[in-house]
Amino acid sequence: MNDVIFKGFGEKAMPFLKALDFHQNREWFLENKDIFEAHLYEPLGDLVEDLLARFEKAGLPFRGDRKKSQFRIKRDVRFSKDKSPYNRHLSALLSPDGNKWAESGCFYVCIGHEDYRGCYAAVAWWQQKPELLLAMRKAIVEKPENYRAMVNALKKNGLAMKDTDALKRTPRGFEAVTDPDLIEALRNRNFVVRYPIDPSAITSPKLADDLLDFALRARPLIDWGRAISGTTTS
Score class of each variant (00 low, 15 high):
residue 1 M to L: 11
residue 1 M to S: 15
residue 2 N to K: 14
residue 8 G to H: 11
residue 8 G to Q: 11
residue 9 F to C: 04
residue 9 F to Q: 04
residue 15 P to L: 07
residue 15 P to D: 05
residue 16 F to Q: 10
residue 17 L to N: 07
residue 19 A to C: 12
residue 20 L to I: 06
residue 22 F to S: 12
residue 22 F to A: 12
residue 28 W to Y: 07
residue 32 N to Y: 08
residue 34 D to N: 13
residue 38 A to L: 04
residue 40 L to E: 03
residue 40 L to N: 07
residue 44 L to A: 12
residue 46 D to V: 00
residue 47 L to W: 07
residue 48 V to M: 04
residue 48 V to N: 04
residue 50 D to E: 08
residue 54 R to Q: 12
residue 54 R to A: 12
residue 55 F to I: 00
residue 57 K to V: 11
residue 58 A to G: 08
residue 59 G to N: 03
residue 62 F to V: 00
residue 62 F to G: 00
residue 66 R to F: 03
residue 69 S to F: 03
residue 69 S to R: 04
residue 75 R to Q: 08
residue 76 D to P: 06
residue 76 D to E: 10
residue 78 R to I: 03
residue 78 R to N: 10
residue 80 S to Y: 10
residue 86 Y to S: 09
residue 87 N to H: 15
residue 88 R to I: 06
residue 90 L to I: 14
residue 92 A to Y: 04
residue 92 A to C: 11
residue 96 P to Q: 08
residue 97 D to N: 15
residue 97 D to R: 15
residue 101 W to P: 04
residue 103 E to T: 13
residue 104 S to H: 15
residue 107 F to P: 01
residue 107 F to G: 01
residue 109 V to K: 05
residue 109 V to T: 14
residue 110 C to V: 14
residue 113 H to F: 08
residue 116 Y to A: 15
residue 117 R to E: 13
residue 119 C to M: 02
residue 123 V to M: 01
residue 125 W to V: 00
residue 126 W to G: 03
residue 126 W to Q: 10
residue 127 Q to A: 12
residue 129 K to C: 07
residue 131 E to K: 15
residue 131 E to Q: 13
residue 131 E to C: 02
residue 132 L to M: 09
residue 133 L to E: 13
residue 134 L to H: 13
residue 137 R to C: 04
residue 139 A to F: 06
residue 139 A to C: 09
residue 139 A to N: 14
residue 143 K to M: 09
residue 144 P to S: 13
residue 145 E to R: 13
residue 150 M to W: 00
residue 151 V to H: 00
residue 151 V to Q: 06
residue 153 A to I: 00
residue 156 K to F: 01
residue 157 N to V: 01
residue 159 L to F: 03
residue 168 K to I: 05
residue 169 R to N: 14
residue 171 P to F: 14
residue 172 R to I: 12
residue 172 R to C: 09
residue 173 G to Q: 12
residue 173 G to A: 09
residue 174 F to H: 07
residue 175 E to L: 12
residue 176 A to F: 15
residue 176 A to N: 15
residue 179 D to Y: 10
residue 179 D to L: 10
residue 181 D to L: 13
residue 182 L to T: 09
residue 190 N to A: 08
residue 190 N to R: 11
residue 191 F to T: 05
residue 192 V to P: 01
residue 193 V to D: 00
residue 193 V to E: 00
residue 194 R to P: 01
residue 195 Y to R: 03
residue 196 P to F: 06
residue 197 I to Q: 02
residue 197 I to S: 00
residue 198 D to W: 04
residue 200 S to L: 14
residue 200 S to N: 15
residue 201 A to R: 11
residue 203 T to C: 15
residue 203 T to N: 14
residue 207 L to K: 02
residue 208 A to K: 05
residue 211 L to K: 00
residue 211 L to M: 00
residue 214 F to A: 02
residue 217 R to E: 02
residue 223 D to L: 02
residue 225 G to T: 05
residue 226 R to W: 08
residue 228 I to Y: 06
residue 228 I to V: 12
residue 229 S to F: 07
residue 230 G to K: 13
residue 232 T to S: 12
